[in-house]
Simulated assay, not measured.
Amino acid sequence: MDVIQVQEDDFNVQHEYDLLAEQNTDDGAVVMFVGRVRDFNANESVVQLELQHYPGMAEKCLTDIANKARQQWPINRIRIIHRVGKLGASDQIVFVGTTSAHRKSAFEAAEFIMDYLKTDAPFWKKEQSETGESRWVEAQQKDIDQKQRWK
Rank of each mutant, 00 (worst) to 15 (best):
D39C: 04
E22S: 04
Q146W: 06
V13T: 15
R70D: 10
D91V: 06
M32R: 14
S100H: 00
L20R: 10
L117S: 03
I65S: 05
V46H: 06
H15F: 11
K104D: 15
E138V: 13
R79V: 14
D145P: 03
F40N: 13
Q48D: 01
A58K: 00
V30H: 13
E8D: 11
N24L: 01
Q146K: 15
E44D: 12
R70A: 07
W136F: 07
K125M: 02
I75P: 09
M32D: 14
A121F: 05
E16L: 15
T63W: 07
G97E: 08
I113T: 04
Q52N: 06
G132L: 11
W124M: 12
N43V: 07
S134F: 15
L117H: 03
E8R: 14
D26T: 12
I75V: 14
I75S: 01
Y17D: 05
W124K: 09
N41P: 02
Q23F: 14
G35Y: 04
I144C: 04
I81L: 09
I144D: 04
M114E: 03
H82E: 02
F40R: 11
G132P: 06
Q148P: 00
E8N: 14
L20A: 13
E111G: 10
N67C: 11
D120Y: 00
D143S: 06
K86M: 10
I75C: 09
R83N: 08
S90G: 05
V84P: 04
E138P: 01
Q23L: 13
D143N: 07
K118S: 02
A21Y: 09
F40H: 15
E133D: 01
C61Y: 06
I81R: 07
D18R: 14
Q71T: 09
R36L: 12
C61R: 14
K68A: 12
E50N: 11
F112C: 04
E44L: 10
F123E: 06
Q7M: 14
P122G: 08
E130V: 10
V30I: 15
T63A: 15
K86S: 14
D10A: 14
F33G: 11
K68H: 11
R70W: 09
R135H: 07
L19Y: 12
Q141H: 02
N24M: 03
A106H: 06
M114S: 05
W136R: 10
W73Y: 06
S90N: 10
W73N: 00
F33I: 08
G28R: 12
C61E: 14
N24E: 06
H82K: 01
V94S: 06
H102Y: 05
T131D: 12
D91M: 05
E8L: 13
A101F: 01
K147C: 08
V84A: 02
A110T: 11
D143V: 03
R38Q: 13
G56W: 04
Q48I: 01
Y116T: 03
R135Q: 00
A69T: 00
D39K: 06
R135I: 01
I80R: 07
I113D: 03
W73G: 02
Y54L: 11
V46S: 05
A109G: 10
I80L: 12
L62V: 08
L19S: 15
Q92I: 09
K125Y: 08
G97V: 09
I78C: 05
W136I: 08
F11D: 05
N76P: 02
V47A: 01
V13M: 14
V137H: 02
I81M: 06
T131I: 00
I65F: 04
